[in-house]
Design a binder for these strands. Structure first.
Lengths: 201, 201
DNA sequence: ATTGTAATTTGACAGTGTCAAGATTGGTTG
DNA sequence: CAACCAATCTTGACACTGTCAAATTACAAT
């Protein structure tokens, strides 16, 4: 038995892979995707420049791994929100909008990693990331259909298309807030309400 | 009179500044913002690595200049669309949505420069760029109010907020299409229609 | 103890943006 | 016309970046 799972603890450092991921997450939170440098990362973990290459093919794969983790958590949050039986469905949807925008603003750098260009441009996304992200969207679609059935999203529209457009709306608003184009987050509540009014009926 | 306007033609190269801008625009169209390199740019124009520094403080200012140019053109297009008296107002708005998405997809790299993170993150935008972009948004607001008055955008909402949200919707959809998240542009028409149905009434 | 193999490091290369100092050039002035 | 001068452009240099190939280290099994 010569194979050792690289994710298991190794001798030199306990779970270097995990430490790399943790440190990268920290760097992203602090300075955004563009602040992630493999060499600074190595310094932070206390390892040589190219050590990360044994666990991640290149920088892109490392970032995709982090993004994928983000989508997994996102999925869980989504489930929690829409399984909360204490609120009426329409309130849950309003809560979802609120949660979306709040999360995006408070975790701007991480949101930017997940939905930003660095990863999605010209098919650089890992297969794993694509799949996980696709699952999240599937959830969004079924959730949309459910809301249509419950009568507060327009039933005339195709669910898939409607899911795209509603999600696009939230995504767009989030981007405006994060990048500070034409907006700052001081009026986030009003924007959420306005969006809810437009989308729901 | 010792001053010579740097924008005027110089002796070594006729209007180097203009040539730099042109070449940069080309690079953006070909490979996106992230493909712009000052050294490759210099090569392309046939000048030394640091020549551009005489006309632009740094790379960021160069990009902002290009983006600003984009916003000026954007402004003109917007005027054209909403001054077209041959169509009824509602059709003009639908046409605007169509134009927006088409432009974004067909000039993805340029759209990305104008509305993407590279320029807007943490206040790196030039004052000039900010102003020009702000003017465009102002137009969007007055246009929104006009549409509210004409009765096909909800009159109950605050114009500024509504302008933000409608624009956010288009921006979000454009980003989804450009980055290829959950979508490709083969269903752009349906997405435009769906968005129009949601926004207008 | 030796061998094998996985983990890690070192060296190197081709890029990048940007600063400081030097070289070039053409118009203005003595 | 010659000298100067300031705008323009180039060269050299520095500190970064990602990534590959080869050498080194360290542990497990024989």
């Amino acid at each position: 038995m010569s194979k050792i799972k690289p994710t298991e603890k190794s001798y030199h450092h306990d779970d270097l892979r995990g430490k790399l991921i943790d440190a990268t997450r920290g760097m992203i939170r602090e300075g955004g995707v563009e602040a992630v440098s493999l060499r600074k990362l190595a310094d932070r973990v206390g390892v040589s420049r190219t050590a990360a290459y044994h666990y991640f093919k290149d920088k892109n794969v490392l970032l995709c791994t982090l993004a994928q983790e983000g989508f997994r958590i996102w999925q869980e949050e989504l489930d929690n929100i829409f399984q909360d039986e204490t609120k009426p469905p329409a309130d849950r949807y309003r809560g979802y909008i609120r949660w979306y925008m709040t999360y995006a603003v408070e975790n701007a750098e991480y949101y930017d990693l997940m939905f930003g260009r660095a990863i999605w441009k010209q098919n650089t996304a890992t297969e794993g990331l694509k799949k996980t992200a696709y699952d999240v969207f599937q959830k969004q679609v079924t959730m949309t259909r459910q809301c249509q059935d419950q009568g507060f999203l327009p039933a005339t529209e195709d669910s898939l298309r409607l899911a795209q457009v509603t999600w696009g709306t939230l995504h767009g608003l989030a981007r405006l807030l994060i990048d500070g184009i034409y907006t700052d987050d001081s009026h986030m509540d009003e924007m959420c309400d306005c969006a809810a009014n437009l989308l729901m009926r």
